[in-house]
Design a protein around this nucleic acid. Structure first.
Length: 521
RNA sequence: GCGCCUAUAGCUCAGGGGAUAGAGCACCGGCCUCCGGAGCCGGGAGCGGGGGUUCGAAUCCCUCUAGGCGCACCA
């Protein structure tokens, strides 16, 4: 794709690439290629040799007009393609520990993961979304003891709060909920029994809350996989057996180690501690093995920046099991810093003053939150300006795009009020669309299927966030230069068609990003 | 100390090895008898330093500098 209009609609650098092999100057090769091309009967209007040996192709306007026809015909399906060849992809994201509220870190992972799943689906991949529930291990026990302590406080007892307990107000709230619901039954239990009960019931309640919170954020999962079930299924022992039979395990200082160093990891890793219990690493290996065994071609994990040390060992573990490690893709997303009124918002988990997903949605709305999180490349750090995201102003890119959509809807309402509503069944004479602003917009609309594929293959939604801003800008430009509801009939109809197509493209992209396309604002 | 990531306009960021490196914000100046002015038009400045690979490097490799983040028989 050339950067400048005078370089045509498509360009090829093939001549330069061939120059060495052919022992000919690139320009001469380009001229030779050009003279052997027979563009008659194709969309190609002209071929020219330019610069150091570029072949620039100019397309007939028929091509653009047919692209417009395709947008109108395909509607909500426009932008979809089959490039992914129905490869089965399992996308795991968020997977927050069920011992606390969702934070802005999970908010970013959620926005990226859900959008990426949408985009890869549109590009022809068979994507399933999965949430891994860490409902086993030491932190679950610590959480249950925290709830239990709060429960006894509510019952009027004076008890010491666990040293490694969870301080947050939500724990008190949770204890109160159990007190109200089944206080009498629970009070009759021994403390240890209550703790065991909370390990299941309180965690289940936390997962339910997380599910609801994500639902409000328009993020849904196909599968919720429990670590506890994985453990009780015998998958860990099975994984150990396979690693042992593949001779990847050895004993040292009373612990069992997995040999990963020769597979790209910095050091070997303990999988069974000297006290006989498993490290957190083994369930993760077993879990990823299970994912592969379910028949997926590609596994994608989206993890926070604090986990990037984890990539090497997990890939090494997959290699140790005999899976191709490149089929496990790990996206590490960048840090999120919150700003309000230009000031950095301090939020630390330790002090319990975190900003939760719900609070974020409350403050800026789902649309702005989702859009802001996918505006940047996933691996880049992100400064999230809460004041900007919450503002209904031209500075806010979400509203800029949504405004373009609403404006088109308004034009269509106006057309209807004038007694000439848009009627998709009547033919359009596309030849009236010749203004540079019309053609520039149309050219961009024609890019959508390629943009979706590019974003899917690069595993990043931010390309589409930028694309849709571009489309909105081109629409506003068109709008200011070409009056849509002009009395001249064929022109009016052509411009209405272009407007409808633009609305379709904006709506389709916003849908992929999980953002609403309002008809009025 | 080891490893990973980052460095592009005053600020926040795009840039899928190609031609003259792009947006938004901020700043200055214009545009409403007209379909939504939440809009549009015009105006300046930039690839951290140094090597290399290539016909061609912001992009790939090495190195230096400056930031960020990780380096548990925690999860």
């Amino acid at each position: 794709m050339p950067n400048h209009p005078e370089h045509g609609d498509f360009a090829s650098s093939q001549a330069m690439l061939m120059a060495k092999a052919c022992r000919q100057p690139p320009a001469a090769i380009a001229r030779a290629i050009a003279s052997h091309l027979h563009p008659e009967g194709t969309y190609i209007a002209s071929v020219e040799v330019a610069g150091a040996g570029f072949l620039n192709f100019r397309l007939k306007k028929d091509w653009l007009w047919e692209a417009l026809q395709a947008v109108l015909l395909e509607g909500p399906a426009y932008g979809r393609s089959a490039g992914g060849q129905k490869k089965r992809v399992l996308l795991e994201f968020v997977s927050a520990n069920p011992v606390g509220p969702m934070t802005v870190v999970q908010a970013r992972a959620g926005a990226i993961g859900d959008s990426l799943a949408n985009i890869m689906q549109a590009a022809g991949y068979a994507v399933e979304r999965e949430y891994y529930i860490n409902d086993a291990g030491a932190q679950v026990n610590a959480f249950a003891r925290s709830v239990e302590a709060r429960f006894r406080e509510l019952a009027g007892e004076s008890v010491p709060f666990p040293e490694d307990g969870y301080q947050g107000e939500y724990v008190v709230d949770l204890a109160a909920q159990f007190m109200a619901r089944e206080g009498n039954t629970l009070r009759a239990l021994e403390p240890e029994e209550r703790i065991r009960y909370f390990e299941t019931a309180a965690i289940a309640e936390m997962v339910r809350r997380q599910k609801d919170e994500l639902e409000r954020y328009r993020v849904r999962f196909d599968h919720w996989v429990s670590e506890r079930h994985l453990r009780s299924s015998g998958a860990l022992e099975e994984t150990m057996e396979i690693l042992r039979s593949r001779q990847r395990l050895y004993e040292n200082e009373g612990a069992t180690w997995l040999q990963t160093t020769d597979l790209g990891d910095d050091k070997d890793r303990v999988v069974v501690k000297s006290d006989g219990t498993y490290t957190y690493f083994l369930p993760d290996i077993a879990y990823h093995r299970d994912k592969f065994n379910r028949g997926f071609d590609i596994l994608i994990d989206i993890l926070g920046p604090d986990h990037h040390g984890y990539v090497g060992r997990l890939k090494a573990a997959m290699a140790a099991l005999g899976f191709q490690p490149e089929r496990l893709e790990i996206i590490i997303h960048g840090l999120v810093r919150l700003f309000r009124g230009g000031e950095l918002v301090r939020h630390s988990k330790r002090h319990g003053d975190i900003v939760t997903l719900d609070e974020l949605v409350e403050e800026v709305g789902v649309d702005a939150a989702r859009f802001f999180f996918v505006m940047r490349a996933p691996d880049q750090p992100l400064d999230f300006d809460l004041t900007l995201a919450a503002s209904h102003s031209q500075d806010n890119p979400v509203y800029y795009v949504q405004y373009a959509h609403a404006r088109i809807c308004s034009i269509l309402r106006q057309a209807e009020a004038e007694g000439t509503p848009w009627d998709a069944s009547r033919p359009v004479d596309f030849r009236v669309l010749t203004d540079p602003h019309e053609l520039a917009l149309l050219r961009r609309l024609a890019d959508l299927p390629d943009e979706v594929v590019a974003a899917a293959n690069a595993r990043t939604p931010h390309m589409l966030a930028r694309y849709v801003q571009d489309v909105a800008a081109l629409f506003h430009l068109f709008y200011d230069n070409c009056r849509v509801l002009t009395p001249e009939e064929p022109v009016r109809r052509g411009r209405l068609a272009l407007s409808v197509a633009t609305r379709t493209v904006i709506a389709n992209v916003l849908a992929l990003l999980g953002v609403e396309a309002p008809e009025r604002m």
